[in-house]
Simulated assay, not measured.
Amino acid sequence: MRGLILVCLSALLASCYAKKESRIEYVGRLQRDLFQDYDSEIIPLADSLDGETGLNVSVGLNMVYMDMTAEGHLDMNLWLKTSWIDERLAWDPKEYHDIDSIRVPAHNIWIPDLEVYNNLGYGSEYINDVLKSRSTNTVIMSNGLVIYVPAAKLTVPCNDKEFADWPWGEYDCSIKLGSWTYSGYLINLQKCEDKNYITNESVEEGISPVFFTENSFQEESLNSDFYPCCQEPYPALHYKFKVQRGFQIGADGKQENPSPVPAYKPAKN
């Protein structure tokens, strides 16, 4: 009996002093479990009955800063806002100390091959190259939701019909982006938060020299293109908007636009 008591006491003491699993250990265990058989080259699309239901990929742009060059090119600093569900990356938080999200480099997982079709800028900071490098972290939620918001630069041409009014005129510009290779049967492109316009969240008024005017984003931005080679649709976001310079900094200091058009204000729901 005494021996049995000693064994029980030893077991109790061992359990009391047993090392708890640290956050480094259980996050590492989670990542090993998620990526053991993961293939980042395969789109996370489950079989569909009709073969025409693609993976829902939400896409949007958030403008941080805009300026226009003397050549009529619009330079923009922005965030690309994307999200989708990858069921292979879902887990039960209860099995991993209730952790409900992790940060993972984008090059470790499948990422949609988005491109800005009319981008003129190339280099490590420009959007198409940023997307190819996949160097930004993603946030992955326990339900498999992947949130990918890389920051990048972008340069697009603008309509020069009205450039006689330079530098204070109102100019037509557009940005068109979509998947480079996936059709609508594989990627179902969606507007982020169902917004038909480029947002400018977290941007103080008057910081950007160029702004969207009230005549912007009048057309539906999400459309599909069809090509002679193929019967499947190729969806793309095509933002059409007008911009105007609010001010410029010259040798004489800051010059304000003498005839500004009201800025674009999205309709309130």
Results as ranks from 00 to 15, higher is better:
2 R>M: 13
11 A>K: 07
15 S>T: 14
21 E>N: 09
22 S>V: 02
26 Y>S: 03
27 V>Q: 07
28 G>W: 11
42 I>M: 08
44 P>S: 00
60 G>N: 09
62 N>K: 04
62 N>Y: 05
67 D>Y: 12
69 T>H: 03
70 A>R: 13
72 G>M: 06
72 G>K: 07
73 H>D: 14
81 K>Q: 11
81 K>E: 08
83 S>A: 12
86 D>F: 08
86 D>N: 09
89 L>P: 03
94 K>A: 15
96 Y>H: 07
97 H>R: 11
99 I>G: 03
99 I>M: 06
105 P>R: 15
108 N>Y: 14
117 Y>P: 00
123 G>Y: 05
123 G>H: 00
128 N>T: 06
128 N>P: 02
133 S>I: 05
136 T>C: 11
138 T>Y: 10
141 M>Y: 11
142 S>G: 09
148 Y>N: 00
148 Y>R: 00
160 D>T: 15
165 D>S: 10
167 P>C: 01
173 C>N: 06
179 S>N: 07
186 L>K: 12
187 I>S: 02
196 N>I: 09
198 I>F: 09
201 E>R: 15
204 E>S: 15
204 E>W: 14
209 P>C: 03
212 F>E: 02
213 T>S: 04
213 T>N: 02
216 S>I: 01
224 S>F: 06
230 C>W: 08
237 L>H: 05
238 H>G: 11
239 Y>H: 06
240 K>A: 08
245 R>K: 12
248 Q>W: 10
252 D>C: 06
254 K>C: 06
254 K>R: 15
264 Y>N: 07
264 Y>V: 03
